[in-house]
Write a protein that binds this DNA or RNA. Structure first.
Lengths: 190, 190, 190, 190
DNA sequence: CATGAATGAGTATTCATTCAT
DNA sequence: GATGAATGAATACTCATTCAT
């Protein structure tokens, strides 16, 4: 499904790549994208050279992290869409995106920004998710569960906005749920 | 409450300070906080030395910019609160905060950062706004226009989130209005 | 005569700039262009930041060094051209270029390379010298002292080549003089 | 004279070594010595590891390339010396060296670097050529075709210089020939 | 033997901040 | 007070060389 032909990658190389991605995800998410590459490499237990062998640019690393996130979301979304009725699936997916996008805002924003600039891989997986979202949205609208005048751009904006809101709320589950209620109620037809 | 007594500041010094604040607001808002101090100074028509005389740190400059913004919002809010009935005032104020927070998100978020890390001056004006918002919120709730279980933290989170959402929508006024509708509808009692 | 309007430059700044140029000339000439910027800065008694304030790029520094050399050569050449008869002036100038171009070859080559790629300033002073050389060449040819079929490109190639030859000869003055004799004899009409 | 006894080298190993040398010659000549080892290995169709097994150092690779060149020149020179009269042989050999040294100058200069710093193998083949050149030179001088006061060092310097000159002239065959004429005329007894 | 992943010292450049003019 | 030159720590990225697979 991906256009590039990658050779299997040696066992240790694959492990390093994975560690790098994990560490980068954690670090970018909690401390922002300003963290030095060297620190990421150290945290992953490899030298900088290794980091740059796997990801030729810091930006490429960031992109890879986001692609992985987006793909995870897309996979879950697909499962949700398949297993429930439209309205439910739509809301479940909305929650999913919010939960998975948790972390530093500058980071989460890339979800939407992807559609605008971004490079190949990101573009691709971002497009995939957008398509899924569009379908879910239409389904929920046809089921009468969501206001029919809400477009995909607004939906994404609401998702990004909700993510940001959640970040500022911290962990309090009651408050978080209240935010979801407000947004979900607001999206219903009047 | 602040320990230092400020002497009146010479006329030209005051003018420089004001220009610096104006330019910094513009620059931080449109291009983010990553812009070099030197560039800000140049745009304001002064040397870097002057910038650092007025604001001992880049962070201090950023803070000053935000304080000014918050104070402007507070003033408007006060006027709104005085001149309209509670529910209307509440919504008008919500819009106001969103519109005035426009620009780079990292920036707008400082509103909420209040209790967390911010410095004295920011703390202070942020607290002032929070008080006003709390009052407006309570008023709107007593008037039956807003769900009674919505707390101040959730309100602020919604504001920050809405700001973010707006940023991602760009200028399209119809879409922006739709976001407002969703959030306002969602805040109403069920 | 130079197109850019430079303000006078503070005394210390001028001194630093000059030191930087001197050190860079020395270092590039004797050890090649691979020498780290930091070392050049240290040798000039300034921080790297200062180096980069004066020359925004390592390449810019190299260019400045060469421009200075070229300008020095051009000035001397002009004086030579004015004070002697064509044939003599031509040969004197040839010697001058060789002597002034001494140093690491990669470096000296830039003289000719200048006409090909190079940036504004270098281009300019390089063009100036080329014009002078062309005039001297023509004069010498009309005086019957140089083969008439020798063009400016060949002349410059011979200069660069002679410089290289001299480098490989070291300081032995007799051998050096013999090289000059060979080249000068060779340039005479047959 | 060299202490290590080399075992015959497996067929594929020999092939790899040869390919490496060919590629390195091509690459160093056309793009300079700054090209990364990895790229050379890739172009030769082997891994870096293999490159470093055959040549323990990048410098060693460079040296090997030059030795091969020098040996090729030496072989041709020997044939020339055997088959023509002294004066002709001398000039033909001069041309040969120039033509064979074509390419990046830093490269051609190794010829002269002989007595200065070079390592064993280079030293050796360089010395061999020098001996041949000395003989040819003497022959030409005895035949009255070359000024008798020209020593071997000057001859080599002239060769290196001529190579450099040629590089700066590009491909124009007429101009190149003119350079040869100048140098050859210049070398004649007065 | 071949491979290519890992390493990490080394390099150019930026930018907040200080201080001599 | 204002200026802008000087500073140097910090940072992304490269590349010769080593070594596990």
């Amino acid at each position: 499904m991906s256009g590039a032909q990658e050779r299997p990658l040696r066992a240790d190389a694959a492990r390093n790549r994975a560690r790098l991605l994990d560490v980068a995800t954690e670090v970018f998410t909690t401390r922002g994208v300003g963290v030095p590459t060297e620190e990421i490499a150290r945290a992953a237990g490899v030298g900088v050279g290794t980091l740059f062998r796997h990801f030729p640019t810091k930006e490429a690393l960031l992109e890879a992290v986001m692609v992985r996130r987006l793909e995870a979301i897309a996979a879950r979304t697909a499962r949700l869409a398949a297993g429930s009725e439209p309205a439910e699936a739509f809301l479940a997916c909305f929650r999913l995106v919010i939960d998975r996008s948790a972390g530093r805002n500058e980071f989460a924003q890339a979800l939407a920004a992807a559609g605008v600039d971004a490079h190949a891989a990101l573009q691709e997986s971002s497009t995939a998710i957008r398509a899924q979202l569009a379908e879910l949205l239409t389904g929920a609208q046809q089921a009468g569960a969501v206001r029919p005048d809400l477009g995909l751009p607004e939906l994404i904006a609401l998702m990004v906005g909700t993510t940001t809101a959640m970040e500022h709320l911290g962990a309090d589950p009651v408050a978080r749920e209240r935010i979801f209620e407000v947004v979900f109620d607001g999206m219903r037809p009047r």
